[in-house]
Simulated assay, not measured.
Amino acid sequence: MLAAALVLGVCATASADDVLFEDVRIFDGKGAALSAPSNVLVKGNVIAAISTSPIEAEGAERIAGDGRTLMPGLIDAHWHAMLIASTPVEAMGDVGFANLAAGDEATDTLMRGFTTVRDVGGPAFGL
């Protein structure tokens, strides 16, 4: 619950696995509005603190958000790893090339915010 996690003036100890996102606008998936510029401390895989004030977290990896949007990962429930970046003829030709193209497209998909995809068919097991 994002609203319950909002705190002011947070001071935390951090480990090397912790990440501090600074100056981000948060989209929580529940409303249309983004938050005010905020800082988010993630410890391991748990959001430990959200604050509009600076968060002290020595040792945490700092990521400058520069006002960009921070949001939960997207899920694509209908994705084709082997056919997303090539034509069917290209995909059935050189299998090595098809795997390289699919790997590049998987990276691009992750960078677009999709952290989970469900491949609904295709020879993606090697990938």
Rank of each mutant, 00 (worst) to 15 (best):
Phe125Arg: 12
Val46Leu: 12
Ile55Asp: 00
Leu110Lys: 01
Asp108Gln: 11
Phe27Cys: 13
Val24Tyr: 08
Leu110Ala: 11
Gly121Leu: 04
Phe97Arg: 11
Gly29Ser: 08
Thr52Ile: 13
Thr115Gly: 04
Ala33Trp: 07
Ala77Phe: 11
Ser51Gln: 03
Ala98Ile: 01
Ala4Ser: 15
Met92Gly: 09
Ala33Cys: 08
Asp18Met: 03
Arg62Trp: 09
Ile75Glu: 07
Asn39Arg: 05
Glu61Gln: 15
Ala81Phe: 02
Ser35Ile: 03
Thr69Asn: 06
Asp17Thr: 14
Ser86Ala: 14
Gly44Cys: 03
Leu8Ile: 11
Ala14Pro: 03
Glu61Ile: 14
Gly96Glu: 14
Gly31Glu: 12
Gly44Arg: 04
Thr115Leu: 05
Leu6Asn: 09
Met92Lys: 11
Thr13Cys: 13
Glu105Lys: 11
Asp18Arg: 02
Thr69Pro: 06
Gly9Arg: 13
Glu90Ile: 02
Ala16Met: 07
Ser35Gly: 03
Thr69Gln: 09
Phe114Asp: 01
Met1Pro: 09
Leu41Thr: 01
Arg118Trp: 05
Glu58Ile: 08
Val19Pro: 01
Asn39Gly: 02
Gly31Arg: 15
Asp119Trp: 00
Ala77Gly: 14
Val89Leu: 12
Leu100Cys: 09
Ser53Asn: 12
Ala60Gly: 05
Pro37Leu: 10
Gly103Ser: 12
Ala91Arg: 00
Thr107Lys: 13
Thr107Ile: 15
Ser35Val: 03
Asp17Val: 11
Thr107Trp: 11
Phe21Trp: 10
Leu41Met: 05
Arg68Glu: 06
Asp66Ala: 14
Leu100His: 10
Ser35His: 00
Gly44Thr: 03
Ala5Tyr: 03
Ile47Asp: 06
Val117Cys: 09
Ile84Thr: 13
Leu74Lys: 04
Ala14Thr: 02
Pro54Ile: 09
Ser15Asp: 09
Phe125Ile: 13
Leu70Glu: 01
His80Arg: 03
Phe114Pro: 00
Val19Leu: 05
Asp119Phe: 00
Ile75His: 10
Thr69Phe: 04
Ser38His: 02
Ala49Ser: 11
